[in-house]
Amino acid sequence: MLDTASHPITARWPAKFPDSIQLYSFPTPNGVKASIMLEETGLPYEAHKVTLSDTDVKSPAFLSLNPNNKIPAIIDPNGPDGQPLGLFESGAILVYLAEKSGMFLGQTQSDKYRVIQWVMFQMGGIGPMFGQLGYFHKFAGSEIPDPRPRERYVAEAKRLLNVLNQQLEGQDWIVGDYSIADIAIAPWLRGLEFYQAHELVGWEDYTNVVSYLDRFLDRPAVQKGLVTPPRD
């Protein structure tokens, strides 16, 4: 059984409020999913900054909670069946917090699976494809002279944006009501600006997506979650 007080991660990132959910994260598109969800639900939590440097994410302390060395990760001292729970993978964290809080997972069982379907769409499509687009457009991959990798991910990003644009026709949120599907998807849409890829993908052509992201960013919990934990 996970012992929150003696868990190795707490030696490096000590808990001031050990009865609260412990969040280990950094404000990336994946990281802010967890902080936004925690802000939206009002569940008490304590945020610890885990940078993307190897000294943090590949440290023995962090690997003791997430062997995949990726943020975010959480420890809930009041997990299922009254036992503490350590959890990694942003999508799994969203589903867990939705079920724990009874929020943002739809009103019916059918809603629940439609919401989860779009969370999987983000995890299997938008996240990996947009991330590769960023790599080949803005970061080290941009130095590769062969244009085909970048063209591949530009085309796939456009396809995914078109899927979202169609899904959002006539509705404010991905699955009707605001849900964890939106908390999963919208931060990655915001990431296209960071990748300096708006012009590349024709961002303004996806009018439903543009207004959708604006609605998302207007939410107070989103604004707080986007800067939690602070970068500095």
Rank of each mutant, 00 (worst) to 15 (best):
T41C: 03
E199P: 12
E46C: 01
M120I: 15
R12T: 07
P80Q: 12
A15N: 10
P149H: 04
P128R: 13
R152V: 04
A15C: 08
Y24M: 07
Q117L: 04
K16V: 03
K100R: 15
G91M: 06
I36V: 15
F62P: 06
E89S: 10
V209H: 06
M123H: 06
T41P: 05
K49P: 01
Y96Q: 04
Y153T: 00
V154N: 03
G79F: 08
D54C: 00
S20I: 00
M37R: 03
G191S: 10
Y153H: 02
G127K: 01
T55V: 12
D172S: 13
I174L: 15
W203G: 11
L160Y: 02
I74L: 10
P67S: 10
V222T: 04
P220E: 08
L63Q: 12
W118E: 05
A73G: 15
R148Y: 13
D172I: 03
L213N: 02
I71A: 08
P220Y: 14
Y212P: 00
L43A: 14
Q83F: 00
F130Y: 15
K224F: 10
L133A: 02
L200T: 15
R159A: 05
R148A: 14
L38V: 11
L63F: 07
D81F: 13
L87H: 08
D172P: 02
